[in-house]
C-alpha cells in the first residue's frame, strides 16, 4: 500500500494500532503509519491462542529491517485466533495492514474500553500534530 489510509470503520490506539470490532470480538493490526515507520516487516511470531491481552500493554513483537518493535493491545481480552499466514508472509503487514496483515482476533472483555480509542479523524489529527 503506497498511500496513507486510515479506514473509518476502525478504532485507533495512540501506539499506532487499530481494532475492528465484530460482535463481541475484535481484530487487531498496526496502522499504515506504523508499518511505514517500521519499514519492511521480516518476522512475526504470533502469540498463542488463549493468551490474555491487556489494553495498552504489549502483546507481541514485530521485526522489521530497522527494528524489533512491541505491539500494543488497543483492548483487553483473550486471543481466539491468530494470523498464521504471516509466519510465511510477514510482508502482508506492509502491503495490506488492514486486511491480510491483521495480527490477532480477541474476545473483548470490556466493550467500554472502546471509548478511550480514537476514530480515524482523531488519529490522523494526532499524526499531524
Amino acid at each position: 500500500m503506497n498511500a496513507a489510509a486510515y479506514p473509518e470503520d476502525l478504532k485507533y490506539h495512540p501506539e499506532h494500532d487499530w481494532a475492528r470490532v465484530e460482535g463481541d470480538e475484535a481484530v487487531f493490526g498496526i496502522t499504515w503509519y506504523a508499518q511505514d515507520a517500521l519499514g519492511e516487516v521480516v518476522f512475526y511470531e504470533p502469540p498463542a491462542v488463549g493468551t490474555t491481552v491487556d489494553k495498552d500493554k504489549p502483546y507481541t513483537e514485530l521485526e522489521s529491517v530497522k527494528a524489533v518493535s512491541e505491539i500494543f493491545a488497543p483492548l483487553s481480552g483473550e486471543i481466539v485466533a491468530v494470523n498464521e499466514a504471516l509466519g510465511d508472509a510477514p510482508e502482508a503487514i506492509n502491503s495490506d495492514p488492514y486486511g491480510e496483515g491483521w495480527l490477532v482476533r480477541i474476545k473483548v472483555n470490556d466493550p467500554s474500553e472502546l471509548d478511550a480509542l480514537m476514530d480515524s479523524a482523531a488519529y490522523q489529527a494526532m499524526l499531524d500534530g
Binding site: V42, E63, S64, V65, K66, A67, V68, S69, E70
Partner: peptide, 11 residues
C-alpha cells in the same frame, strides 16, 4: 541485527 537495535533498545 535488529534485535540489537530493538525499538526499546534495552530489550
Amino acid at each position: 541485527q535488529t534485535r540489537e537495535q530493538h525499538i526499546r533498545r534495552e530489550k
